[in-house]
Design a protein around this nucleic acid. Structure first.
Length: 287
DNA sequence: ATCTCTGTTCACAA
DNA sequence: GTTGTGAACAGAGA
């Protein structure tokens, strides 16, 4: 599920652990989420360390620990399709599909992923994220930068480029559709036909709005209703009806702008919804 | 029972 | 070299 806003929400839910000492690590005995780091390594390295920083970049999370034995120690999490972080009391027992629990004196920080499409990586270098591309809301995501990006691969379909994590980190299926819709562009439009300034504006609008509607609002809810983030529930508030989001999966859903029926098809390998009336910029229309 | 899914990766085709 | 497609991963809910 998680795209950039849910990933940011997950980061904030674990943020209270900063400054805490890890007292124990419980790992699910049989899981494939520990891809390049055996669970035994985590159990050996993490207890006694202190969490000192949390970061999010696109769909990735990075938790940095200070350790007596390692110069640098980071845990990178990817939530895949169904991953979720939550916080619980220190004596919390692992729920179904909890893959690992970080224990601190006052909390349990849990990682749950029933589909196991996510994963955990261990990094031991100073900055494992040194080479990541700029994010949509970074200052480095400039008009010149995006123009060069489009010039490099002018024939790629808009939807495919939006889903490319090295181009638009953190944008997933629904955000990609939302950006196409806001841009009035058909998802299969070759990106060479687009105005980079318009694409930049639309993608920034959607990323900013997603953070506000999903990360900010659900986080505010979590501080008044901690039980809302117990296993089994997660995101409660979604973008408003003026966004495509609330209409795209409804059978017979209609465009919030012109009220005509939405179209659906598989584009760039993913189910895609768009408004055939509003999204008039096409690759094959001649204009 | 069958199908779908806010994701990524890999093999392979065109 | 580029671009597109389908399968695989695993489980829940319709």
């Amino acid at each position: 599920m998680p795209e950039l806003a849910e990933v940011e929400l997950a980061r904030r839910l674990w943020e209270p652990a900063v400054g805490d000492t890890i007292t124990a690590v419980d790992c699910h005995p049989k899981t494939r989420v520990f891809r390049d780091c055996p669970a035994a390594t985590l159990r050996k390295l993490l207890p006694g360390t202190q969490l000192i920083a949390t970061r999010a970049h696109g769909k990735r999370l990075l938790f940095t620990f200070s350790s007596a034995t390692e110069h640098f120690l980071h845990l990178e999490l990817h939530l895949g399709m169904a991953g979720r972080l939550y916080t619980a009391p220190p004596d919390h027992l692992a729920e179904k599909h909890d893959h690992f629990l970080l224990r601190t004196p006052n909390h349990t920080f849990a990682y749950n992923d029933y589909r196991q499409f996510g994963g955990v990586k261990l990094h031991r270098e100073a900055d494992p994220w040194a080479a990541l591309p700029p994010q949509v809301l970074d200052r480095k995501f400039s008009l010149a930068y995006l123009t060069a990006l489009l010039d490099r691969r002018p024939r790629v379909a808009l939807k495919a480029l939006l889903l490319d994590q090295s181009a638009f980190p953190g944008v997933g299926n629904w955000m990609a559709d939302e950006i196409c819709w806001r841009l009035n562009a058909h998802p299969s439009t070759p990106v060479g036909r687009l105005d980079p300034a318009d694409l930049r504006k639309s993608s920034q609008f959607v990323c900013r709005g997603a953070i506000r509607h999903v990360a900010d609002k659900n986080f505010a809810l979590s501080s008044t209703r901690t039980e809302a983030f117990a296993p089994g529930s997660y995101v409660h508030l979604v973008p408003p009806p003026s966004w495509l989001f609330q209409h795209r999966w409804k059978p017979g859903g209609s465009c919030p702008r012109c009220n005509k029926s939405l179209a659906r098809a598989t584009i760039a390998g993913r189910t895609t919804a768009w408004c055939p009336i509003c999204q008039t910029i096409h690759g094959n229309s001649g204009t």
